[in-house]
Design a protein around this nucleic acid. Structure first.
Length: 615
DNA sequence: GCAAGGTC
């Protein structure tokens, strides 16, 4: 009998459906001579330090460098402390039984590094020796699954992929566990001062931005505004130049030939420019963009949004949520018209859905090459039952974005008028000529600046108009805003884009810091460690966070580049490079960061002795 | 007590 193992139940169900297997058992599905089972993500993890004899936290144990790593069942916290996750244990028993009976295993975990690791950890933990083949697909439509099965790969083809995954996993353990213990022990604070390849650069970004914001010295500057009257329609224009001191601006103001100063028509229209600007629809959502939007619109945390999405997914209302792709393939696109037709009765979007059923769909979000492990988030078309307010809000963002993404472009008329009265003044206005995709949510344009007029009256070059008011505007330069969840998620995604080293930047181009599935939990970890707090919508470092930042900020572990350099080496391993060489480098780095952190912890210890209020 | 990765 052949056993097919997927990364998660939903994929196993999809595959079983294609085979026409439908006998549901505890932990697997059976039929047509196959069994279809699944994991729940990682069921196994690298064993904690005590499994290698490092029972207590102690400087004597550092650095901890296990000869050979062990695996253990995923842990959860419960009333009795940290225990084996019962769900993982139970599913592992099911898998063991099926593997024992199997003649062949077909690996259908997600097509990527972690998917490979999820299977191999199970396989090696169970000491399984059965032959296995690999199913490698990036969408779960019937056709993609069938094609994948016609094209099964030898399991051994992915040995180097497993090697790179295993190295990633061990390296994170070695660096994270050792650096954390070193800093925590040396600082003598009794609390955990955790460090890691992802969390520490994230903390560093939040702290650096906070300090930059706090130490920012605003510069004052001045502009002059005038109000122009075109046959009773008033509009505002601002001086093209800005002025360092008020006196200078006052002089400019003085030269404005307004009505009060006795000039009936003191504003001369120098130029009128009008041009259309086309805005393509936004791409479909991936997890990160949806978390950002939910944070902006509703103030949801990344963690809340993920939780709600998981619920919608488990109830089959939306497709797989932890995706990093904003595209779908042609196979999924083929199902979109029917999907849209299902929303013509929707309370908010019914009208736009109806319009879309009669239009040619925009294919900007359709690109099979940009679909990675999973495609963009879509509604499934299942009928929504009664949802809570928050669930409905997230669901509507998914549905609304689908309608936007396949809509036509928005066309805006941008008008710029230049008026001369002494100095030059400009007014700009934006009018939506064709709403296109913007009709779906019908939001006000978030990009619009304060000084912009919605619509400008029709004026003609060369005409002279009365200026009915004038004033000096006090302005000041603004610091970069503190991070909130939305801007931090964005920054994590694009972390590495500014790395100077070409190779490291290239290695990180598809990843950023963390993954879609883990970014919400990284923010929660920093909060749990008391490194950062939520202050209104912002993420702000605590005194603890700032002092940890103070001691690590120049270390590699606080730089996004560390991930870049690992990704580069891991990719080389995937294409066959030596594992041992990388492991040696990691071991060396572990030794060095451990001793650095033991020394740095001393600094924290000295600092905490200083009188309160000094920092 | 600790990482980052995956998922229910």
């Amino acid at each position: 009998m052949k056993v097919i193992i997927a990364e998660k139940p939903s994929v196993a169900r999809e595959i079983a459906k294609v085979f026409g297997a439908n006998t549901k058992r505890e932990g697997y599905i059976e039929g047509k001579g196959y069994t279809f089972t699944w994991a729940f993500g990682h069921l196994l993890q690298l064993a904690p330090p005590q499994e290698y004899g490092y029972y207590r936290w102690s400087v004597q144990n550092l650095p901890m460098l296990p000869q050979k790593f062990k695996l253990c069942i995923r842990k959860v916290s419960s009333k009795e402390g940290v225990v084996d996750d019962p769900a993982a244990k139970k599913q592992l028993d099911v898998i063991k039984k099926l593997f024992d009976e199997a003649t062949e295993i077909i690996v259908a975990t997600d097509a990527g590094r972690e998917g490979e690791l999820i299977f191999r950890y199970i396989y090696y933990y169970l000491k399984c020796k059965k032959p296995f083949k690999r199913l490698w697909i990036s969408s779960q439509t019937d056709e993609a699954i069938k094609e994948g099965f016609r094209n099964l790969k030898p399991g051994g083809d992915y040995d180097t992929l497993f090697n790179s995954a295993h190295c990633r996993s061990q390296s994170d353990w070695l660096v994270g566990m050792n650096a954390t213990q070193a800093l925590s022990l040396a600082s003598c604070t009794r609390s955990v001062l955790s460090l890691g390849r992802v969390q520490t650069p994230t903390l560093a970004m939040i702290c650096a931005r906070y300090l930059e914001n706090k130490n920012f010295v605003p510069e004052l500057y001045y502009q002059v505004a005038i109000q122009v009257d075109k046959d009773g329609q008033l509009f505002r224009a601002i001086s093209v130049k800005s002025y360092k001191n008020r006196a200078e601006a006052e002089q400019v103001l003085e030269r404005v030939e307004d009505v009060a100063a006795g000039f009936a028509n003191g504003g001369n229209i120098l130029s009128v420019e009008a041009k259309p600007r086309k805005e393509p629809p936004p791409l479909l959502h991936d997890l990160s963009s949806l978390q950002q939007e939910a944070n902006k619109r509703k103030g949801f945390t990344a963690d809340q949004t993920l939780g709600i999405l998981q619920h919608l997914y488990e109830n089959k209302l939306v497709t797989y949520p932890r995706t990093g792709s904003r595209y779908i393939g042609d196979d999924v696109f083929a199902t979109v018209p029917q999907l849209i037709a299902g929303f013509t009765g929707h309370a908010l979007f019914g009208k736009q859905a109806t319009i879309l059923t009669e239009s040619k769909l925009n294919k900007r979000s359709v690109n099979a090459k940009k679909v990675t492990d999973h495609h963009a988030i879509l509604p499934t078309g299942e009928r929504a039952y009664t949802l809570s307010t928050d669930q409905q809000a997230i669901y509507d963002m998914v549905v609304g974005r689908m309608l936007e993404a396949f809509h036509g472009e928005c066309v805006k008329e941008i008008t710029k008028i230049t008026v001369k009265s002494g100095e030059d003044f400009t007014a700009s206005g934006t009018v939506v000529a064709v709403p296109g995709w913007r009709a779906v949510f019908n939001d006000k344009d978030e990009e619009k600046k304060d000084e912009e007029n919605a619509a400008l009256p029709k004026v003609v070059k060369g005409e002279n108009l009365p200026i009915t008011n004038k004033a000096v505007l006090d302005k000041q330069t603004k610091p970069k805003a503190l991070y909130n969840e939305a801007s931090l998620l964005k920054a994590l995604e694009t972390a590495g884009k500014e790395i100077e080293d070409d190779e490291l930047r290239y290695a990180m181009k598809d990843s950023g810091l963390g993954t879609p599935a883990t970014r919400a939990s990284i923010i929660e970890t920093l909060i749990k460690r008391n490194y950062i707090i939520r202050e209104k919508k912002n993420l702000v470092p605590t005194a603890t966070g700032l002092s940890v930042y103070g001691v690590v900020k120049d270390q590699q572990i606080a730089q996004a580049e560390l991930t870049g350099s690992w990704e580069k080496r891991l990719e080389e391993i995937r294409s066959g490079a030596s594992v041992a060489a990388f492991q040696q480098e990691i071991q060396n780095y572990t030794r060095s960061i451990t001793s650095e952190m033991l020394r740095a912890g001393e600094v924290l210890r000295q600092k905490s002795k200083e009188p309160a209020g000094k920092h």
